[in-house]
Design a protein around this nucleic acid. Structure first.
Length: 505
RNA sequence: CGGGGCGUAGCGCAGCCUGGUAGCGCGCCUGCCUUGGGCGCAGGAAGUCCCCGGUUCAAAUCCGGGCGCCCCGACCA
């Protein structure tokens, strides 16, 4: 058996190896590169060291480790709740799609064919018709909807599926862009354009609500330009978030597919007047890329910082003791407090590992982003207190003595404060790095390290020019407009809408 | 696809120029000792030196070919 060479799970740079000889150098190896010094490397090492994910033997593929998957499960629950509350149901459609399906919708095939993985052999035999590994499921679902929908009474159809898809990307990065990624894709069919448009916007709103309330990430919902539109959509909407380096990340999308797929797959219904009509369809998705957003929005130089509402562990209990006698007393108290917290539906982890110093554990859980750490030593047992250490406030500033009385209430309160503080910090950062340039020169400065909001004439030539000259792209036309009229930031022609520009992942 | 870098223990690397016993740090295992911000000591396990071929008495090292990974660019949800 030949062992395939895998990318290095732990790449500590050469320049660090040089410091190794000196006494203090070991610390620098344990630390992440700082965000300001090398944001990209900070991200790579954080993902590995927080044990969210690891590289797979195939280029561009990712192993989601249990801690990362637990985070994803919490994301799934928060979204699934919202989908169900708006009348959607889950189902599962196949991984393999006949290649001819992809080819039925003109712009869909044009958009996706360069990045398809195709199966040509099955059971040792060359296949009559190659099968593509789904890059998204509009086609195979469209085929099913054509069979299921006959009458206006069958509408709307509101189905979602949780799955993974494959797109053969050239340049990959853990969570942000991998060959295979996990997501949910919702697919709906409606009787009218208006209903389809309402659905598209409703789901965009759900993504925005999820991002802000659960992940503490402020987002800008908006409409995509023609060039950034999904292959096969009449209209694409997205939520855009600002990462810690000032770049934009599209964090969820919602598409109004018009009648494009309905016509390609003959999805039709008989209306009340007995007239055969094509359906109006939508699709919307949010992927594990969102985990990348959480990392890049909230993380600091110590590691990950998870929003309490999504964190796999909201609280970690770290016992501290010197000898067996102290250990017995401390562990007994830790066990009791743990039960109290569990009874209050808090997600709690007790770090019982032997042979690791408390200091090591502090750093370890900070790397993993647990929002609240509770330290309990012999002094606390004696005094009836514990030490809270808030992850969002490093060092002594985030530490406080808290009574063991009513601990579950104090913890819940602290978690809410952390959740709110993370959102406020992210919002303040985005505001500080979002500018409203008065001319093109100011625009260029603004998109160097953040967002620009300015009038845009709607002409794709300006979009192209801006991209060529600044590397910034139009992220979206925000739904929320201040109104009025102005001049295009690029060409100076009259413009009615303001657009969001920034460098993007 | 173009340019650059790299493949040696689980990880980070040295050794290669000048061919001859495969090494260091971290991690891992055992024991002792420690524990309120990344403890310490002692012992131990662990290698297809990416693959194939060539040169040579002898190849991690020299030569030829292949494969893979990373970074930058191009392309792109």
């Amino acid at each position: 058996m030949t062992e395939s060479k895998v990318q290095q799970p732990f790449r500590v740079r050469n320049f660090m190896a040089q410091e190794k000889a000196t006494a203090g150098a070991r610390m620098s190896e344990l630390k992440l590169p700082s965000r300001s010094e090398d944001f990209s490397e900070w991200y790579n090492q954080l993902v590995l060291r927080a044990e969210l994910a690891d590289y797979a033997p195939v280029r561009g593929c990712m192993i989601v480790r249990p801690y990362g998957w637990a985070l994803w499960e919490n994301i799934q629950q928060a979204l699934d709740r919202r989908f169900k509350a708006t009348g959607h149901v889950n189902a599962a459609f196949p991984l393999l799609i006949p290649r001819s399906f992809i080819e039925k919708e003109k712009s869909h095939v044009a958009g996706f064919s360069p990045e398809l993985a195709v199966v040509t052999i099955g059971g040792g035999e060359k296949l009559e018709e190659p099968l593509v590994v789904r890059p998204t499921s509009e086609t195979i679902i469209g085929h099913a909807y054509a069979k299921w929908i006959q009458s206006y009474r069958d509408l709307p159809v509101l189905i979602n599926q949780w799955n993974s898809v494959v797109r053969w990307e050239l340049r990959t990065k853990l969570f942000l862009r991998t060959l295979e990624f996990f997501w949910q894709e919702g697919h709906t069919a409606h009787a009218t354009l208006e209903e389809a448009e309402a659905e598209t916007q409703q789901m965009l709103g759900i993504y925005a609500d999820f991002a802000e309330k659960e992940a503490a990430i402020p987002v800008i919902p908006g409409r995509k330009s023609e060039s950034e539109r999904f292959a096969g959509a009449d209209q694409t909407y997205s939520i855009e978030a600002m990462m810690g380096d000032g770049k934009a990340l599209q964090s969820g999308t919602s598409h109004n597919l018009g009648q494009n797929f309905a016509k390609a797959f003959e999805i039709r219904y008989l209306d009340k007047n007995g007239v055969l009509q094509y359906c109006w369809t939508t699709s919307w998705g949010l992927s594990t890329r969102f985990i990348g957003a959480i990392i890049m929005v909230h993380g600091d130089d110590q590691g990950l910082i998870l929003p309490p509402r999504l964190a796999p562990f909201q609280v970690v209990l770290v016992p501290i003791f010197k000898n067996e006698e102290e250990k017995a007393a401390v562990m007994e108290r830790v066990g009791k407090l743990r039960q109290e917290l569990l009874a209050a539906d808090l997600r709690v982890k007790t770090d019982e590992r032997e042979g690791f110093s408390p200091g090591y554990k502090f750093n370890d859980w900070e790397m993993r982003g647990v929002p609240l750490r509770i330290e309990i030593g012999p002094k606390d047992v004696a005094k009836g207190t514990v030490v809270f250490a808030r992850r969002d406030k490093p060092g002594k500033e985030g530490k406080s003595f808290v009574s063991q009385q009513g601990l579950a209430v104090s913890v819940a309160k602290a978690l809410e404060e952390i959740q709110a503080a993370l959102y406020q910090r992210a919002l303040a950062f985005r505001n500080a790095n979002t500018h409203k340039p008065g001319d093109y020169a100011e625009f260029k400065v603004a998109v160097e390290k953040g967002f620009s909001i300015s009038f845009w004439c709607g002409n794709s030539q300006c979009e192209e020019q801006i991209k060529a000259e600044t590397k910034a792209t139009m992220r979206c036309i925000p739904l929320e407009q201040s109104g009025g009229q102005g001049k295009c930031i690029c060409c100076g022609q009259p413009a009615k809408e303001k657009a969001l520009f920034g460098k993007a992942y």
